[in-house]
Design a protein around this nucleic acid. Structure first.
Length: 594
RNA sequence: GUGCCCGUAGCUCAAUCGGAUAGAGCACCAGCCUUCUAAGCUGGGGGUUACAGGUUCGAUCCCUGUCGGGCACGCCA
């Protein structure tokens, strides 16, 4: 127990070692001290920690780096943490910890449990993470799944390192796409009622099965929905000859707009009812889908509400009053090129309607007004050109756009039998997130999605993922956890006694390496959070699992002196806690047996 | 054409914000189950980090150029 004083939960090893180095720097130099960097060397012969500080000081002090390093080593205050210090290479200071210093991490982990790795780095700042935010015009597909898995993990990480996190879904319920979905549903309802004779379903309508299902439901629920074809043709200005009407491809968009207008005119208030119905249906489906994926939002923010509350009009007038708008060709333009964008952008169209950009400015200003210190927008990579204009608007209105971060998520390409699966949302030809979850399972999907950097293309091999083969890294990590639980179960002792176990025997190579990985966990989480890089957690867990599996194969844990067995059980228990916690951050379960 | 991102082992990807001998998985080769789960372990081969320059103690990382790939360039959202 006396050894617990070596490290405390408040001060990590890194912090204490940095303090020692800083003290040494002050002794040999009066120059303003730069914060000493501690690295984790790739090779064990380079110590538990290494610092290139002497190399960095060399220029300012006008001395050879090796000489500075030697002085620093001599000036280093004595510490129970440090076994020895070596001067190496061009001037690295390699620090070797005492076995006791390494072992103490086990007690810290057992003591803090799932709180281990948490930090106050975020110091309670409020951060909003907005992600998925797909148009509620159909089921989520595998591309949205990546955004969901990534965003949820980023949010979990930020939470873990001390931020106050709000998870938000921006509902694009105000645009033309929702009208197209409404009309699509209506036309399907007419088709199902055998009302459409000469008018065919538009190519640019939503064609998925879910539209047919909503149409069936709508027929049951809303009277006045089903009308004959004649008034529709009249309103559209099309002939009543009874012949099939063919819309040329270049006319399709105009035709759709005409259909929307006609639907509004013919249905009257029922149009709004239907619009509300399809929106509600899609959002409910989306929410359930995400929940089953382990992704839960704190808020679903309606774009329409920005128009209803007058926030959009207000924000445009704020830009107006600040002198950032001008008129050209009948439209109102925001001078975004004056704030770093490559060209100016329209906020109000010639027809008087606000653009999506206008409501998006209002949305982002609203985020700041809601009191968030940091704003994280997770967008598809195809929106990267959109970032400068949002920053420009925020800057123009006096907000600090450095408080906005926009990590991009690249596309997902599906491969089946070595061939790329072509997808089209509009035509309903896509693999849904739900299908993927059913085939692959939630755990595998969640891990697979975040296994590579978010801004890299992801080739999702369906055959590999659906084969449930050992190639899938999720099993490798989960298996480590399951093995640990089985060993602890076999041991059968009281876990509480492990908190005060004597750890002196944990000095073998495998054990040392595991300890080194374990005490790297808090710093790893901080980096993964600040880089928005959950893939680092996945790689970490695989490394930790690999070391554990090697250990497992090498040492019969339950054999030997009780004191030694206790030490191993304490170590295993600590590994289990970290693996479970890390998987939890990624939304992956940690089964006790497999 | 312009802008942004990317180019690392046969394949899919990492690389501690400029650090030491660039690492994993898959695939390939050779071994390990009467012992806590073989969904595991051990060993092996495999690289001019696309190419050419530059910056410095030191470059996969920063700068310039070339080649190749992706995305974006609407009064759509």
């Amino acid at each position: 127990m006396s050894s617990r004083s070596v490290t405390t939960p408040e001060e990590s090893l890194e912090t204490r070692l940095c303090a020692l180095l800083t003290a040494a720097i002050r002794k040999i130099s009066s120059a303003p001290t730069l914060h000493p960097v501690l690295e984790r060397p790739r090779q064990s012969m380079h110590g538990d920690f290494a610092s290139p500080i002497a190399l960095q000081l060399a220029k300012g002090l006008r001395q050879p780096p090796r000489e500075i390093a030697a002085q620093l080593i001599a000036a280093l205050p004595p510490s129970a943490l440090i076994e020895r210090v070596e001067l190496a290479g061009p001037g690295f200071i390699n620090i070797f910890l005492t076995a006791q210093a390494r072992q103490e991490i086990v007690h810290e982990i057992l003591h803090r449990g799932h709180l281990f790795g948490s930090s106050q780095k975020g110091s309670g700042q409020r951060v909003q993470v907005e992600f998925v935010s797909s148009n509620p015009t159909g089921p989520l597909h595998v591309g949205h799944g990546r955004g969901a898995a990534y965003g949820a993990s980023v949010a979990n990480l930020l939470c873990k390192v001390g931020y106050q996190v709000q998870r938000e879904y921006y509902v694009n319920d105000a645009g033309r796409q929702m009208d197209i979905l409404t009309v699509s549903t209506w036309l399907r309802a007419l088709q199902q009622s055998n009302k459409l004779k000469s008018l065919s379903f538009p190519n640019n309508g939503y064609q998925g099965d879910y539209v047919e299902i909503m149409a069936q439901e709508a027929i049951q629920r809303f009277s006045g929905l089903v009308v004959s074809e004649e008034p529709l043709l009249s309103t559209l200005g099309l002939p009543h000859t009874g012949d099939l009407i063919v819309i040329p491809p270049e006319e399709e968009e105009h035709h759709m707009d005409a259909l929307i207008a006609a639907a509004k005119e013919i249905l009257g208030p029922t149009y709004l009812t239907l619009h509300h119905f399809v929106l509600t249906e899609q959002l409910a489906d989306c929410r359930q889908d995400l929940e089953e994926f382990g992704v839960v939002f704190d808020d679903w923010f309606s774009e329409q509400s920005l128009f209803d509350s007058g926030a959009v009009a207000l924000i445009v007038s704020r830009l107006e009053n600040a002198g950032h708008l001008y008129t050209d060709k009948g439209a109102r333009w925001f001078r975004s090129s004056a704030f770093g964008d490559e060209k100016d952008r329209v906020v109000q169209r010639e027809n008087g309607l606000y653009t999506y950009f206008a409501s998006d400015i209002a949305y982002h200003v609203g985020k700041f007004e809601r009191g968030f210190d940091l704003i994280v927008d997770i967008w598809g990579a195809d929106h990267h050109g959109y970032i400068p204009r949002v920053r420009a608007a925020l800057s123009a209105l006096g907000y600090d756009d450095s408080r906005l971060s926009v990590p991009l998520v690249q596309f997902v390409s599906l491969f089946r039998q070595g061939e790329k699966v072509q997808m089209s949302t509009r035509k309903g030809q896509f693999i849904t997130l739900r299908e993927l979850r059913t085939e692959v399972g939630r755990d595998a999907a969640r891990l697979f999605y975040i296994l590579r950097k978010s801004d890299q293309h992801l080739d999702f091999d369906l055959d590999l993922a659906t084969s449930q083969s050992q190639d899938n890294p999720v099993y490798y990590i989960q298996y480590a956890h399951a093995r640990i639980q089985r060993v602890l179960e076999r041991w059968g002792g009281d876990p509480v006694v492990l908190e005060s176990s004597v750890l002196n025997s944990l000095i073998h190579e495998e054990e040392t390496r595991i300890l080194q990985i374990l005490y790297a966990y808090p710093a790893l989480l901080e980096q993964a959070a600040s880089d928005f890089a959950p893939h680092l957690v996945a790689f970490y867990l695989r490394d930790l699992s690999a070391e554990f599996h090697a250990y497992y194969n090498q040492v019969p844990f339950l054999e030997g002196e009780p004191i030694q067995v206790h030490a191993r059980m304490a170590l295993l228990s600590a590994i289990g806690i970290v693996v479970r916690d890390g998987l939890g951050l990624l939304g992956v379960s940690a089964p006790d047996r497999m």
